[in-house]
């Protein structure tokens, strides 16, 4: 298990135990984090699992695919440099302690 911190817009921190090999989206949904909607279930189609990755942690993540890059143009909350889709963040030991911020809204 890898510990990941999700920060709600109001500042509340939620720490989830994420399973290696799964996605951050799956870990958040399993933990009942309502700020991640993930309507499409991880098909990279809906942009409702948007997160802002803590700037210092960005280099821990592999580059986003062209598909993810295009889908991020459809997020309900403003897209930023550190925007990612949590369904595309695969959990590995290198992500221990990763911190992401949840957007105001997902749709």
């Amino acid at each position: 298990m890898v510990k990941i911190t999700l920060v709600e817009p109001g500042g509340k921190q939620i720490i989830v135990d994420a399973k290696e090999g799964g996605s951050l989206m799956q870990a958040a949904v399993a933990a009942g984090v309502t700020g991640i909607v993930a309507e499409c279930g991880g098909s990279m189609m809906c942009a409702t699992c948007h997160v802002y990755v803590n700037e210092d942690d960005l280099e821990k993540l592999p580059k986003k695919s062209e598909g993810e890059d295009e889908m991020l143009d459809s997020t309900a909350s403003i897209r930023k440099e550190n925007s990612r889709l949590s369904c595309q963040i695969k959990i590995g030991p290198e992500l221990e302690g990763l911190k992401v911020y949840l957007p105001e809204s997902q749709y």
Binding site: T34, V37, A38, E39, C40, G41, G42, S43, C46
Partner: peptide, 23 residues
């Protein structure tokens, strides 16, 4: 219920590409 993970629209790379329109 929050039924995220249902397979009605498929899942993965072949997941329904028209699902936003359907919704």
């Amino acid at each position: 219920r929050r039924p995220t993970g249902h397979l009605a629209m498929g899942t993965g790379i072949h997941g329904c590409v028209g699902q936003n329109l359907a919704r």
